[in-house]
């Protein structure tokens, strides 16, 4: 393996990593270092920004008004994550057990809405909510926002679970059932522990992006209520309070890095167990 790797047409490794470094510096380190510097500044009452270092922006995030927006967004994202997982788990399980053309069809039926433009999907949901499908006014309400979030993020929860179920040996459940496990036990004692890493990854890929979702609260919610997404847009473009907005983005970045670290741990744990 090592020997044949050396036989690949040899290019200098130092040259090969240039695009990676350029991307890290130009797209991640540069923007986010500048942003975190801004988060330690303060916006003065006259609208200018003081460059003296302070934790004022972070302290202001604890103000009930802003804390309310953050908590409301987290609660909505959490509700969306639970909803997506509950729907995705059985769907992905069934898809993994289908065979041949049926399986390809099922996968396409999940992938096509995902490949369709995000804006068109939101457009379709708004049209649908206007029909008052549940006898309620869905558009411009929080349940309507949750419906649209779930509609847009569900495929992201189905795919990692499907990939994980796909790798599982079906005889495992048969053996457990033969030994007298109830259906409930099959799920709680076998499926959930076995696919912990995929469940975590599905939850992560729904939860974090939906905390900062912008288009759904802006269009389906009609911007009638602030969530992190439209609040950020407002702070940067309208209220011009860059320090406050930056502090909130730094928190989102922190949450993302924390999630990724945990995901890596789960993954290395499950590969070690699998080996």
């Amino acid at each position: 393996m090592v020997a044949s790797k050396r036989k690949l047409p040899s290019l200098n490794t130092t040259l090969l990593v240039i695009p990676l470094y350029a991307w890290i510096i130009g797209f991640l380190v540069g923007p986010f270092v500048i942003l975190s510097l801004f988060s330690f500044n303060t916006r003065l009452p006259d609208g200018t920004t003081s460059t003296a270092l302070s934790l004022e922006a972070y302290r202001r995030l604890l103000d009930p008004l802003y804390l309310g927006i953050i908590l409301r967004s987290l609660a909505l994202a959490l509700a969306n994550t639970v909803l997506c997982l509950l729907l995705a788990f059985p769907t992905a399980y069934l898809m993994a057990r289908l065979r041949g053309p049926q399986k390809a069809l099922a996968l396409s039926l999940i992938l096509i809405p995902l490949a369709t433009s995000f804006l068109i999907r939101i457009f379709a949901v708004m049209d649908f909510l206007r029909l008052k499908p549940f006898g309620l006014d869905g558009l411009y309400t929080v349940p309507g926002i949750l419906f649209a979030l779930c509609y847009n993020y569900l495929p992201y929860a189905i795919l990692p679970l499907y990939a994980s179920f796909q790798r599982q040996d079906p005889r495992l459940l048969e053996a457990a059932a033969d030994l007298g496990a109830s259906r409930r036990q099959l799920v709680t004692r076998i499926l959930i522990p076995l696919h912990k890493s995929a469940i975590f990854s599905a939850a992560l890929f729904v939860f974090i992006p939906s905390t900062g979702e912008y288009l759904v609260p802006a269009l389906v919610g009609g911007s009638r209520q602030f969530f992190i997404g439209n609040f950020l847009q407002n702070q940067f473009l309208t209220a011009r309070n860059w320090p406050l907005g930056s502090a909130l983005i730094v928190l989102l970045l922190f949450l993302t890095l924390l999630g990724l670290r945990q995901l890596r741990r789960y993954e290395s744990f499950s590969t070690r167990k699998g080996a």
Binding site: P209, G212, Y214, L232, L253, T256
Partner: peptide, 11 residues
């Protein structure tokens, strides 16, 4: 993973 708006504003 990071919400798109955070990337857009950072840029």
């Amino acid at each position: 993973l990071l919400p798109e708006i955070a990337l857009g504003l950072a840029l």
